[in-house]
Every structure is written in C-alpha cells, then in structure tokens.
Deep mutational scan, measured.
Amino acid sequence: DEETLERIAKELKEKGWTLIVNGKLITDAREALKWLLEEEERR
C-alpha cells in the first residue's frame, strides 16, 4: 500500500541507497517511489 511505499522511499533516502531500474540508476527517493507506484499499477 501507499504508506508502505512511502516508508520504503524514506528509508532508501535515509540510507542513501540507489535503485537500479531497467539499467537506470535511481538515487532520488521520489523517483523510486514513482517507479514503485507504477509497478503496483501494472499488477
């Protein structure tokens, strides 16, 4: 759910983690959240 996604995005940002999505590096939590939401919609 959205709360979980926001928590994940926040944790990613705090830890300075990066996500690699389709070979693209995502360092911004907002971008990561946007991607996660798009993935949820596809299901």
Rank of each mutant, 00 (worst) to 15 (best):
E39A: 07
A9F: 15
A9D: 06
R30S: 07
K24H: 12
E39I: 13
W35N: 01
T4Q: 09
G23Y: 04
E2P: 14
I20W: 07
E38N: 07
L33W: 12
D28N: 09
L33D: 00
D28A: 09
K34N: 06
N22H: 04
L36H: 01
L33E: 01
E2F: 11
G16Q: 07
E2G: 09
K13V: 15
D28W: 14
E3V: 08
E11Y: 15
L12V: 01
G23R: 01
T18N: 06
K34S: 03
R30I: 14
E14Y: 02
W35A: 05
R43E: 08
E38Q: 09
W35P: 00
W17V: 03
L37R: 11
E6Q: 09
I8G: 00
E3N: 12
A9V: 14
K10V: 11
W35V: 04
K24C: 14
R42D: 05
L25D: 03
E6H: 06
E6C: 15
G16R: 04
K13R: 12
L37Q: 07
E31N: 07
R30W: 13
W35C: 11
E39W: 13
E14S: 05
E11I: 15
T4N: 05
E38K: 06
R7V: 04
L5M: 05
L12M: 08
A29C: 10
I26M: 02
R30F: 13
E41Q: 14
I8N: 01
E14F: 01
E2C: 15
E40C: 15
E38C: 03
N22K: 03
L12I: 10
V21D: 04
E41I: 10
K34T: 05
L19I: 11
K10A: 09
K13T: 13
L12P: 00
V21F: 06
V21P: 02
D28I: 07
I8M: 06
T27S: 06
E2A: 14
R30G: 10
D28R: 06
T18H: 08
E31Q: 07
E11W: 15
L36K: 00
I20A: 03
I20E: 04
V21Q: 03
K13C: 15
E3M: 13
E14W: 05
T4R: 13
I8Y: 03
E31V: 08
L33P: 00
G23E: 04
L36T: 00
L25Y: 10
T18G: 05
L25A: 03
W35H: 09
E14M: 05
A32W: 14
L36A: 03
N22Y: 08
E6D: 12
R43A: 12
R42T: 08
A29R: 01
E2Y: 14
G23K: 00
E6M: 14
E38V: 04
A32F: 14
T18Q: 11
I8H: 02
L5N: 02
E3A: 13
E41C: 15
W35T: 01
E6N: 13
V21N: 02
E38G: 06
L37Y: 06
I8T: 00
I20G: 03
L19M: 05
E40Q: 11
E39H: 10
E14L: 07
A29W: 15
E31H: 02
G23I: 09
E38A: 13
T4S: 09
A32D: 00
L33T: 01
E3S: 13
E2R: 13
A32G: 01
L33F: 04
L37W: 10
K10L: 13
E31K: 04
R7D: 05
R42L: 07
D1K: 12
L36W: 08
N22C: 14
I26P: 04
T4W: 15
E41F: 11
E41T: 09
E31Y: 03
E3W: 14
L19R: 00
A32L: 14
K15D: 03
R42S: 04
R43D: 10
E39D: 09
W35Y: 10
K10I: 08
K34A: 12
W17T: 01
K13W: 13
D28P: 03
W35G: 01
K24R: 06
K24E: 10
I20Q: 01
D1V: 15
A9T: 11
E6W: 08
W17D: 00
E38F: 10
I8C: 15
E39K: 08
G23N: 05
I26T: 02
E11K: 13
L33S: 00
D1H: 12
E39M: 13
E11A: 13
E38P: 03
K24G: 06
K24V: 08
W17Y: 12
D1R: 11
E31D: 06
R42M: 08
